[in-house]
Amino acid sequence: MNTILTSDRLLIVRNGDAEKRLKLLQEALAADRIIPYLGPDLLRLQSTEPPVPDTPEAVSAALNKRTLAPSRIRSNMWSVAQFIEQRRHRRTLQTWMAEIFGAPVAPTALHDWLATLPISLIVDGWYDGTMRAAFAKTGRTDVVEMQGVTRANGGGDIWTKTYDLSGRDVERVSAPKTVLYAPHGSVMPASNFLVSDSDYVEVLTEIDIQTPIPEMVKERRTDRGFLFIGCRFNDQMLRIYARQIIKRSHGPHFAVLDAEGLTKNERRFLAASAITVVDLPTGEAAALLVPFGIKTDGEEGHTASGSNFRSG
Rank of each mutant, 00 (worst) to 15 (best):
M1I: 11
N2D: 06
T3F: 04
R9Q: 10
N15H: 02
L24V: 09
L25T: 00
Q26D: 01
E27Y: 04
A28S: 03
A28Q: 00
D32W: 13
I35C: 03
P36N: 11
L38N: 07
L43H: 02
R44N: 07
R44T: 03
R44E: 05
E49D: 12
P50I: 11
A58I: 02
S60M: 05
A61Y: 02
A61E: 12
A61K: 10
A62L: 01
A62I: 00
K65T: 00
R66E: 09
R66Q: 14
P70Y: 10
S71M: 04
S71Y: 01
R72F: 10
F83A: 01
Q86M: 11
R91L: 10
Q94A: 05
T95F: 10
E99W: 14
F101W: 05
G102M: 05
G102S: 07
P104Q: 02
V105T: 03
D112C: 01
W113S: 03
I119V: 11
I122G: 10
V123R: 01
D124N: 05
W126S: 15
F135T: 14
K137T: 03
R140K: 05
V143M: 01
G148M: 06
V149H: 07
V149M: 04
A152H: 04
G155H: 04
G155L: 03
D157C: 09
I158P: 07
W159Q: 05
T160Q: 08
K161F: 13
K161G: 05
T162F: 00
G167H: 09
G167S: 04
E171C: 08
R172Q: 12
S174V: 14
A175Y: 12
P176M: 00
L180Q: 01
Y181C: 04
H184E: 07
P189E: 03
A190I: 06
A190K: 11
S191W: 02
N192W: 13
D197K: 09
Y200V: 13
V201I: 06
V201A: 10
V201N: 09
L204R: 14
T205E: 11
Q210C: 12
E219T: 00
R224F: 02
L227P: 00
F228I: 03
C231V: 15
L238R: 04
L238Y: 05
I240C: 01
Y241G: 08
A242F: 10
Q244L: 05
I246Q: 05
I246K: 08
R248N: 13
S249P: 10
H250T: 01
P252Q: 14
P252R: 10
P252D: 14
H253T: 11
H253M: 13
A255E: 06
L257V: 09
L257Q: 12
D258F: 07
A259S: 13
E260I: 09
L262R: 01
T263G: 07
K264E: 00
E266V: 01
E266R: 03
A271C: 10
A272Q: 13
A272K: 15
A274Y: 12
I275K: 15
V277W: 02
V277H: 15
V278P: 12
D279E: 14
L280Y: 13
A285V: 14
A285E: 10
A287E: 11
A287Q: 02
L288V: 15
L288T: 15
V290C: 05
P291G: 02
P291T: 08
F292E: 06
I294C: 04
T296C: 09
E300H: 14
G301D: 07
H302F: 14
H302P: 03
A304T: 13
A304K: 00
A304W: 00
G306T: 14
G306S: 06
S307M: 05
N308A: 15
R310H: 11
S311F: 12
